[in-house]
């Protein structure tokens, strides 16, 4: 495990005052799913922190553990089969993982809120959207029905849903995909959380609507200084909004860097190959670069570096020793034995 990243605020003392202290610190998080087919290690030793107002993207392909990480932070993992086996999640210094469920509930929605990918299945079809937005105020703040509804209308206005007053009693199916996602955002925003976790918020949307929703999130973030954790597989969206990027592969963080650095000079072969695999203008008519093979099954992650069977630079050490997430110059990290060589491009493709 990456020893070097351990922050020594092990006690549960909230750090007050310091406005630049991280709002969220995730440390050495491990999640496993105990299934009939064996134990799937969905998340292995994930460590990162989020500063106030910052946008962190967690980038990965399906099965890389990015959504499970989010669920573990929110404490909404399906248990069983999913179990957090190790690690801590600290919100302003308080380890919320260790809190009893009753107290933890106060953090969920109020301090950390989440936006899900599929708004249609995340919203309840038999309640009006106004009811569902207002629910946050009724449950967390004990507001009356009438007050909750007024608040709901305000929020719908804030996320630019036209004719909010008329539409507050409509049901989710009466809204378009983009509008439904706005309702999800309204629910997440309702209690002014410090952090919003958006799990593939625009994957189900068309590009023109995606642009609107991403713009809305950026505006809201600028207004309220929330931290945003954006979970996505879309390299385009990430490049547009993220300050910092964490790349996951087979449950591990394999690279972490500021957006510009990551795109211009990746320090891990997986990131490098992934960026190379996007079709681009100057590749027209040529074969695309590919990553051979497929992502590993989480019940059977390859020994050593999980990426080594697909890595064009792999050497014998890669199948023997798991590379730690090492600190790389320029405030970044990489979990590759050969990050130096990857950075200066001196590796030869096998």
């Amino acid at each position: 495990m990456s020893q070097d990243t351990i922050n020594t605020t092990a006690d549960n003392r909230p750090h007050d005052g310091d406005p630049n202290a991280p709002v969220l610190e995730v440390e050495n998080l491990h999640v496993e799913f105990r299934t009939r087919d064996g134990v799937a290690k969905a998340v292995t030793g994930v460590t990162f922190d989020l500063l106030p107002g910052e946008t962190l993207a967690i980038l990965g392909e399906s099965g890389s553990g990015k959504s499970v990480t989010a669920q573990a932070i929110m404490g909404i993992l399906d248990t069983p089969p999913g179990f957090v086996t190790q690690g801590s999640v600290r919100f302003r210094g308080v380890d919320i993982q260790a809190l009893p469920e009753k107290e933890r509930r106060r953090y969920r929605g109020e301090k950390i809120a989440m936006i899900f990918q599929d708004a249609l299945s995340s919203l309840n079809p038999v309640y009006s959207v106004g009811y569902q937005i207002g629910e946050m105020f009724r449950v967390h703040r004990g507001a009356s029905r009438a007050d909750a509804k007024t608040k709901a209308i305000e929020l719908m206005d804030r996320v630019h849903i036209p004719a909010a007053r008329q539409r507050v009693n409509d049901y989710p199916h009466q809204f378009s995909g983009g509008m439904r996602q706005r309702i999800m955002i309204a629910i997440a925003l309702s209690l002014d959380p410090d952090i919003i976790i958006a799990d593939e918020p625009t994957t189900a949307l068309d590009v023109t609507v995606q642009a609107q929703v991403m713009q809305l999130l950026a505006d809201l973030q600028a207004e309220s200084k929330m931290g945003l954790i954006l979970i996505t597989h879309d390299l385009g969206v990430v490049a547009d909004v993220a300050d910092k990027i964490s790349v996951m592969y087979a449950g591990r963080l394999i690279e972490q860097a500021r957006s510009l650095d990551l795109y211009s000079n990746p320090a891990h072969p997986y990131t490098e190959r992934l960026l190379a695999a996007i079709p681009r203008v100057d590749m027209k008519g040529q074969e695309l670069y590919t990553i051979k093979g497929i992502p590993p099954n989480l019940t059977d992650i390859p020994a050593g570096c999980a990426f080594h069977p697909r890595c064009p630079y792999a050497q014998s050490i890669c199948s023997e020793k798991t590379p730690p997430l090492e600190v790389v110059p320029g405030d970044r990290r990489s979990a590759c034995h050969f990050w130096k060589e990857v950075l200066d491009g001196s590796l030869q493709i096998r």
Binding site: T208, D234, G236, V237, A239
Partner: peptide, 12 residues
């Protein structure tokens, strides 16, 4: 509009 809405994988 469609083309301009596509996010470009290049933070620069």
């Amino acid at each position: 509009a469609l083309l301009s809405a596509v996010p470009v994988p290049d933070p620069t």
